[in-house]
Nucleic acid binder design. Structure first.
Lengths: 192, 192, 192, 192
DNA sequence: TATGAATGAGTCTTCATTCAT
DNA sequence: AATGAATGAAGACTCATTCAT
């Protein structure tokens, strides 16, 4: 019963994900999702009551399926500098990824959804936490220069957030991303 | 005729601006704008074919009406450090402003509009140019430490862009903005 | 403009009336009325926002078109007894009329509409007033026996109301109506 | 099996009754009843094919559960006048009762259901019979003035029917009910 | 018996767009 | 130029009814 429901939901979410990727959030209709999932309109309502509900579930699922390989690689690395390089590379991958839900997430937040804002905030703060951890470690080991880890972590993530929105709404190029990520690394390392 | 048309268009844009401020871009309808402008639906179509066309015109008008007082104050300042402080204060004001077209602009870009992307890019690059100019000046005068003006200017504007999207989609507070802007200043001044 | 609107509304009401006669109130849809009026769904919404609004307008129109011939005949009658006979005959006609909005009116009131209740109440009280007037006149002239005009008028109209609902929901026959109306007359005349 | 079925049906009817009380007849859905009875939609169809079928069964059950206490009190009364007072008091209670199926019954009849009409007719005629019996008895004993029992009984019940629909669809007050019931009594007693 | 998933039809409502005036 | 009436196409949502299990 519950299992059947879960399977069905997963199926709906898979279809919905494609729709959100292609159309963002605001212009997606329940019909779009029903069609993508290959079920009837009425059927969809048995599982979800709105596109927002569906989208938040897509995000949740996304999160739980996050690249575990990445975390393994991260934890197997001894060196703070290398860890940072890994994290930044991962961020670059995300920034350039075609299929991601950034636009839809922003649109959801724009639409006034508190849950949407909360999801984005949580995502951001989690990233800040990871970055803070790396910075503390690197500072302790003498790999990074002494700075306020909290503020610096936040600054770095803001730059990346700026790049994220930039790649979606402006002509931000891969070169620009590389340049900025390199610069972040430099600033942490520079002894001057 | 042309003058008449211009007056009418200005009238439409004034109404439309309010609508875009309140509702973003995607959920705005031609009816919304016709109502806000106090004209008939049919009448609106005599001047504009779509909400995108109207929104782009709103942006264009916005640009041409930009805060000239600010530019005056800027040009009357001798000191690069003070100029930067002015610019950052202006940015802060923008970041916190309730009524701005950021969300609508982003939504327009998300909707795939090339013109929308172009408008945002131009705006960003113009800001980078101003920042670059300031940095060069401050470096030359010895007020700022030596850094690559291009890259640094871009980094600063990316942080601000990150803050901009953050205030719209996350729980980014005024304190966080202050902290980051102060940090930008510090990093330019620090001699270490 | 206003005239055009009035003509259109009258046209809609004419179609709507048929629908309400046939289907009562609750099961009538905006589509039913649009179809009956020969206009599009969207078009109907330009004039009315709900079936309730339409129905109340049908009632209002009904009222303003009331049988003026009847009132003339009434006012040309000198004799209270004859006037009463006229009124009762009119009521009988109404009771047996195929095409009346009684059922729809009741359904509207059942649906919780305050305006519906108000319309029915007003209609009833108006009839009571007329009846009271007749009774007073007949009592004064010695044609009717002395009774409390208010209470008696109300009693008579309640009997008629009972007959009205009875003809719609039970097997109340014309004979039964005749018998009761005759009895009302008798009770007013009887000297015992 | 048959017993099981009966229990189940009773359970469904109990839930359905609440729904009809609250929503009348026309706007009640099979889903409403299934939910109220705590069974599945499919399950409900095993016992009933439509809301009409269910409602008629609710009425039938209602009838068989009628206030037997009242009948006892009635039969233990020697005096026709007192009996009538009892009956009228009972009617008043019914008129003012919040939870009764009057509205739903009328709606059923309006919807064209022959069974609905038949049920209402039977109920009315039964009441007329009781009233007739009382009148005959009172006339015989000299308590009531001489009138045609059939016509008078019917008239009384029509007044009550008028009050019934009046309390549901107009602003008929308790005072008005009292006044009318008192008047009925008076008219039977008066010797003039 | 009983469930509840599923479908498809039907209703409400809002708009973009056109067109007669 | 301008109006606003009109249409038809969506989109949201709810149910009656069926069916596999």
């Amino acid at each position: 019963m519950s299992e059947r429901t879960d399977i069905k939901r997963a199926h709906i979410l898979a279809g919905a994900r494609e729709v959100f990727l292609k159309k963002g959030f605001r212009s997606v209709t329940m019909k779009d999702i029903a069609d993508a999932a290959g079920i009837s309109r009425g059927g969809l309502y048995l599982y979800y009551r709105s596109t927002e509900e569906i989208f938040l579930d897509v995000l949740k699922q996304e999160e739980s399926e996050e690249d575990t390989g990445f975390e393994e690689r991260l934890s197997s690395t001894r060196n703070a500098k290398e860890m940072l390089a890994l994290v930044l590379a991962e961020q670059k991958k995300e920034l350039l990824a075609e299929g991601d839900l950034t636009e839809a997430s922003y649109e959801l937040a724009f639409s006034g959804s508190e849950s949407g804002r909360a999801a984005l905030t949580e995502r951001f703060e989690k990233a800040v936490e990871v970055m803070k951890y790396l910075l503390r470690r690197g500072i302790r080991s003498g790999e990074f220069r002494r700075t306020d880890p909290e503020e610096t972590a936040r600054q770095i993530m803001l730059i990346i957030e700026g790049l994220r929105i930039g790649t979606r709404t402006m002509q931000v190029t891969e070169e620009m991303i590389d340049e900025q990520l390199r610069r972040i690394m430099q600033q942490l390392l520079s002894e001057d």
